[in-house]
Write a protein that binds this DNA or RNA. Structure first.
Lengths: 201, 201
DNA sequence: TCCTCGAAGGTACGAGCCGTACCGTATGGC
DNA sequence: GCCATACGGTACGGCTCGTACCTTCGAGGA
């Protein structure tokens, strides 16, 4: 909106995305109205709908602008320390305003596989998974965990339990005791248990 | 709407709830409009808003009418069989149309603790939890699992993982292999692992 | 340098929904 | 038989989404 120039293509697209991201942080996903985004971007809904066919698609794309911060994989020297740290990072993210947006988007995209996959990309679900895997690999290398412990379901377990907590309690952040319990009462015992012979073939 | 009689109190309330439940099954939660419910119940929105202040509250109450079927706790003789059966029951519920409604309601109530608690009651979350606990208790009694295995987090684990699957994949039912994996690769190893001494205090 | 076509701006609109207000009317209790 | 209460009917304001239509700009080719 500077001068009489008319923005086009990528320039306009970035402006829209930034405006949408600002609306997201200001009013959440529910408050991210197409009209408000258009007004804030200094354009009109036409230009938006030409790029994103639905509100949810714009919301997901805009979330990508918000969630550009990549959290480093912790390395405390012990599996327990690493797991706890990573879980605390995740909890901090999920309980932040950005986490509220993420959860709303997740709900909005739940019945559209295409959007769901897009959201997973934007939210860095792959990176989180890789972090947990790296953490387990290191523990195995240190001899702290049996090699059998490295398994996709084990990798995904702590985040699933964290999500479960949010589903049960709702908005507020998960107390630290719960995170400790997830690690000490579930994650670590499971890692130990997978070193034992099972009954199944 | 039979005859010229005017319904009041509990009679009208039941009629509204039934109409809302029918709308839920017909169009899902998103399609459950206050106007449509009122029309189907043969009344008007006034009578509804006098009882439920928001759409979500009505949706949750109506869901209670849908989910009156209590599933029996399986008893196959082995922990693995019981767990698998219970997980399959849960998956069947969650992947049914009723499950779609439930997931929508969960999203709608996510940021209102009061509604969330109401929904947990209506959805029989307590009963499901009790079923998993009973199943573990029986396994302990049979000597199939160590007493330490009975722990709230262990009880809640399989359902949390199932929810996680829905969050990741979206709508379709979870393949049976995944359910088997949850039991064989996570649940049972954890139960075994909790019988071992850990490193924490 | 001029022309043309695609893209952006502006605006208006239809449709749907929520939640509220107002008022006439029946019903059950006193 | 009277009256407070709750129901029926209807209308409305406000908001949102998504679409349509036309004007205007801008970039690249002739």
């Amino acid at each position: 909106m500077s001068g009489g120039r008319r923005r086009r293509g990528a320039e306009l697209e970035q402006a829209i995305l930034r405006a949408a991201a600002e609306e997201l942080t200001a009013s959440g996903y529910g408050g991210m109205t197409m009209d408000k985004v258009a007004r804030r971007a200094g354009t009109n809904k036409n230009a938006i709908y030409r790029r994103w066919p639905q509100r949810a698609a714009l919301g997901i794309a805009a979330y990508g602008h918000l969630a550009e911060t990549l959290t480093p994989v912790p390395d405390t020297g012990s599996l327990r320390g690493d797991a706890l740290e990573l879980l605390r990072q995740a909890d901090a993210t999920w309980s932040s305003p950005r986490g509220a947006v993420l959860r709303d988007l997740l709900a909005a995209a739940a019945d559209e596989p295409v959007l769901l996959e897009l959201l997973r990309e934007q939210a860095g679900a792959g990176a989180v998974n890789a972090a947990w895997r790296a953490l387990l690999d290191r523990a195995v290398a240190r001899g702290e965990a049996p090699p059998e412990a490295v398994h996709p379901r084990v990798v995904a377990l702590p985040m699933a339990l964290l999500r479960g907590e949010y589903a049960v309690r709702g908005v507020p952040a998960v107390p630290d005791e719960v995170l400790v319990e997830i690690v000490d009462e579930v994650f670590l015992p499971l890692v130990r248990g997978r070193g034992l012979p099972g009954r199944h073939g």
